[in-house]
């Protein structure tokens, strides 16, 4: 579904952050992305959620070579990707409901469709009673669940999460990871970047390990579930 071949990435004229990264993600797979700080995890995630194009190498998303994809085609590809940011990146002036509804509204869903989906999803993440609360009044765990709900409201083909448990307590980490596993079970390809080895071991999914911009595949040679 997604293939990276000899991908290199540098910002401007700086040193290469990623070097010769090659892997593929099969549909419905679950991967952890691990590595020390500065290894290039965030850069790789940015490539995965189409925030940047690589400096070199081949990237194939859903059967399309990214090098040949026009800028105007990117929104449609991006709607197939859900993103959970470490710092949530919720809109502070919007309510929980409005934040989660954004991807559907971008897609052009009607008000009724949005209401049905958002209420159902907020109930799934346990936030049905916080629907009209603004992010400033939510706890870290609640914000992260809002971010997850926003990421999955469009039923994405690929879910990318950057340290989703970084700002929550261990109990909440476990609950959040449970949500990701549930999503993966219904066919969403999932990549979770984390420093939390306990979670990695508990889930037991394949690992993409980055070190100094280079990818190691310790669990198996070719990433895939």
């Amino acid at each position: 579904m997604i293939t990276f071949e000899n991908v290199g990435m540098r910002y401007g004229m700086g040193a290469e952050i990623l070097q010769d990264v090659s892997f593929s993600l099969e549909k419905g797979s679950f991967h952890f992305l691990v590595g020390p700080s500065g290894a290039g995890k965030t850069t790789l995630l940015k490539l995965l959620y189409l925030a940047h194009r690589p400096s070199r190498g081949l990237v194939n998303f859903f059967g399309k070579d990214l090098a040949t994809v026009d800028r105007t085609e990117l929104p449609r590809l991006r709607r197939r990707i859900g993103i959970v940011f470490q710092d949530f990146r919720l809109f502070d002036h919007l309510t929980t409901f409005e934040n989660v509804a954004l991807p559907l509204r971008i897609k052009g869903a009607t008000k009724n469709q949005v209401a049905d989906h958002v209420e159902e999803l907020l109930s799934w993440v346990g936030l049905e009673d916080r629907m009209h609360a603004k992010p400033a009044t939510l706890s870290g765990g609640e914000k992260q669940r809002v971010a997850i709900a926003r990421a999955v409201i469009n039923k994405p083909d690929l879910l990318v999460a950057d340290e989703p448990t970084g700002n929550v307590d261990p109990e909440m980490s476990e609950r959040l990871m449970h949500l990701f596993v549930e999503l993966n079970k219904i066919g969403t390809t999932t990549v979770v970047a984390t420093h939390d080895n306990t979670l990695v071991e508990a889930i037991g999914a394949p690992i993409l390990s980055l070190d100094k911009g280079q990818l190691k595949l310790p669990n198996n040679d070719k990433a895939g579930h």
Binding site: P75, R78, R89, F91, L102, P103, I106
Partner: peptide
Amino acid sequence: DSIEIMHLMGAEDRV
């Protein structure tokens, strides 16, 4: 930041 998030969620320029 808001514009970047909107783009990443698939918003077109016209939105």
